[in-house]
């Protein structure tokens, strides 16, 4: 069973996307802030990390930067899932090695789940 670390502070997004992915048979580990997310990324051998950017305690890009400096997480695929759409954030995320940058507002829940499944198949 593939494992997904889901770092997101919004209850509704956690609940809907988290449950949607569980129903598809994935093991979901949740974190509600950046610090917890970073800690869990080192402890849990996730096959994929879904990372929001505006997070309590530590910004998502900082989490990604730290992950890329750790031996155990520098190759872990990361999907950025946020509502921030400015070009500076997108470029920075891709520079730091994010696999994909998804703007939540542009997709339905089903579309996001499909994209996550596709990323895990690669």
């Amino acid at each position: 069973m593939k494992k997904i670390l889901f770092i997101e502070d919004d209850n509704a997004i956690q609940k809907t996307l988290g449950t949607g992915l569980k129903n598809k048979g994935y093991d979901i580990v949740s974190a509600k802030d950046g610090e917890e997310g970073l800690l869990l990324s080192k402890e849990v051998k996730a096959d994929l990390v879904i990372l929001d950017l505006i997070l309590p305690k530590m910004h998502g890009l900082k989490v990604l930067e730290n992950m890329r400096q750790e031996e155990s997480t520098k190759e872990t695929p990361v999907i950025i899932l946020t509502n921030l759409e400015n070009i500076a954030e997108v470029e920075r995320a891709l520079e730091l090695g994010a696999t994909t940058y998804l703007v939540k507002a542009n997709y339905s829940l089903e579309e996001v789940i499909n994209k996550i499944e596709t990323a895990l198949e690669v």
Binding site: A12, I13, K104, S108
Partner: peptide, 17 residues
């Protein structure tokens, strides 16, 4: 836009679910 989009996305996904 970001502040309005976030709760709107949450509303939409919860409704879709």
């Amino acid at each position: 836009s970001h502040q309005l989009r976030s709760p709107l996305t949450s509303l939409r996904w919860a409704s879709q679910f």
